[in-house]
Design a protein around this nucleic acid. Structure first.
Lengths: 338, 338
DNA sequence: GTGAAAGCGCTAACAT
DNA sequence: ATGTTAGCGCTTTCAC
């Protein structure tokens, strides 16, 4: 660790450490001359303040944590970009933690934040998270927390989401408009709010169009790629085979396309597909993929901005408010009649 | 920040802070009974040690930094997963910094690491980085550094790369084997070692097949998507139009596919395409994409492992060694005759 | 305008 | 086996 300290500068210049500290922070009660001398020496010796000494003294770390379920996913990658952009601007550092959709790990991660390691937390909960005690505990320690995307409604704090219900509805309506009557929905959880809302939008659209909801059309996917493929295949081999599929999460797209290829089902003629996805490649898939695109970057940016607003004013309490940034439906070949 | 400290535990149990500290760290010179009492109270009061106090005292932060050019890219996303996996296992924290391919920002980021904020650094340099003084400076402060993917050969430390030369060669040879004689190469830098090596492999393959290298076939792409599209279009509109294209970086794939569509060039009949890419969707593109796939996850994991080896033993010096993990060529429709 | 002193929470010598 | 003491590097009253 760095060896050149404020004490050393002080000795060198025959000043007190207090004077140095103040000069470096451009305090008003240090003369311009002294400031110059200090700054000059600091520059010359390449002085770098020890962040942990400051953190200890001031009780703030200038660091935030971002807890994500995973990162091999365009949505979270893009969100990180948004978050980091704001953090850099504010002079903060970003610790990244991955829960890997694992509740135990998420608990351990949040527990660590009770130590004062970070000034605030951006959280997108894991698919396994039902119990929210660990999040409550964090809030009870007054660590500012902002949810994004995968929020937890029972915790009263700021939440950035996209319009999941409307998106689920729009996706379903779009397929119906294109002739589908038997639409499968692939989701990753039946406890996550995002999953439920998309599901509700789906069900409402069915209802509004006089189509009965069939539970057999709902597939709960796991982290096990092979198993998912099998399950999707099973659904597509049913005698009452779906004529449309909605993937509520990006990574299931590949599975659907591959299973269709294997079963020699033509997209979109025999089955129409729409995915919640941020993949840049949607446009060049075979066939090109109709998507619900979430504003990932903007959601990350918004979440970070709200958190920093809380961090900057003292005694700023995060309200139980919800910012909804809409997703966009981009219609391509996979869902339309050729 | 947390208010329950060792001092408080000490008072509560009529012990010294030293005893508490030792008991918590399971030191040998504390009696089993006392340990129990301490642990019990700590658990009861939900004591969480202040990491910065420890860092200040011990002069180590239990944190590493990962500096990446960007993260909206499958390669770096996957690498983060590999890194994080090892870090968690070792009880370390991971600070993520994005240079956004910007030299100035990279310099500022590395500068901060001279403060003792992190115990070690994993670095993949920006495309703009020519001057390496900032990296030298970091090394001179004895901050352990491991490069991965985008390495800097002039800095004597551990480097994890993939076989870029061979991959460039293999990609080129593959296209030649499939009838191409006029192959364009799209790269992102002419200073990065990865770019140069891929380029050298390309040139050597041409040479070995008696094809003359044409500088007009080499396109240096930028961060500007629109401009790249224009440049690619220009190349594909040349009278001596290429019959093959190698994208040395994932994000250029979309551009190539879209330009070909716009120009009504059939892939692979009129032009063959191969990309360096980790996209899961390569398989379901139209047509499916032949790729050179880099071992992103394993490279991240290997880089982190080597760094932690250095961090764990004291006085362990990172040698100027190179670990090369090979990429794999996956042949699909975009490069083969139908 | 500058300095002395206390202390953030923890650990590590060195007592006892 | 436990306590005392000093100090990591910095900031912040409060004197002068």
């Amino acid at each position: 660790m760095g060896n050149i300290t404020i004490k050393l500068l002080a000795k060198e210049l025959n000043l007190s450490t207090a004077a140095i500290s103040k000069a470096l922070r451009d305090s008003h009660d240090i003369s311009a001359v002294t400031k110059q001398r200090v700054l000059a020496l600091a520059a010359k010796l390449d002085y770098t303040p020890n962040p942990y000494a400051g953190s200890l003294r001031r009780k703030k770390s200038k660091t935030i944590a971002v807890v994500l379920p995973e990162v091999a996913d365009s949505f979270f990658s893009l969100a990180i970009n948004g978050i980091e952009e704001v953090a850099i601007e504010k002079g903060y550092h970003v610790l990244i933690y991955l829960s890997h959709e694992n509740f135990i790990r998420e608990k351990a991660i949040l527990k660590d934040f009770q130590s004062g390691r970070v000034d605030g937390v951006l959280l997108s909960i894991s698919a396994e998270t039902n119990d929210i005690q660990h999040i409550q505990d964090l809030c009870n320690k007054d660590v500012p927390l902002v949810f994004f995307d995968r929020v937890c409604n029972d915790i009263p704090t700021a939440k950035i989401t996209t319009n999941d219900y409307e998106s689920g509805y729009a996706a379903t309506q779009h397929l119906i408009d294109n002739g589908c009557r038997n639409i499968a929905l692939l989701s990753i959880s039946n406890s996550l709010a995002i999953s439920n809302k998309r599901m509700e939008g789906y069900q409402q659209a069915l209802k509004d169009n006089g189509i009965e909801y069939d539970a057999a059309n709902h597939l709960l996917c796991s982290n096990d790629v092979l198993k998912n493929n099998e399950e999707i295949k099973k659904i597509l081999l049913r005698k009452k085979r779906p004529d449309g599929v909605i993937a509520t999460v990006e990574k299931l797209t590949t599975a659907i396309y591959l299973v269709c290829k294997e079963l020699q089902l033509n997209i979109p003629n025999q089955i129409k597909v729409i995915s919640f996805s941020n993949q840049a490649s949607a446009n060049i898939l075979n066939p090109s993929l109709t998507t619900i695109t979430q504003p990932a970057f903007d959601m990350g940016k918004a979440a970070a901005s709200i958190l920093f607003k809380a961090l900057e004013k003292k005694n700023f309490i995060l309200k139980n408010e919800s910012l909804v940034i809409p997703s966009t439906l981009t219609i391509r070949e996979s869902s339309t009649n050729s």
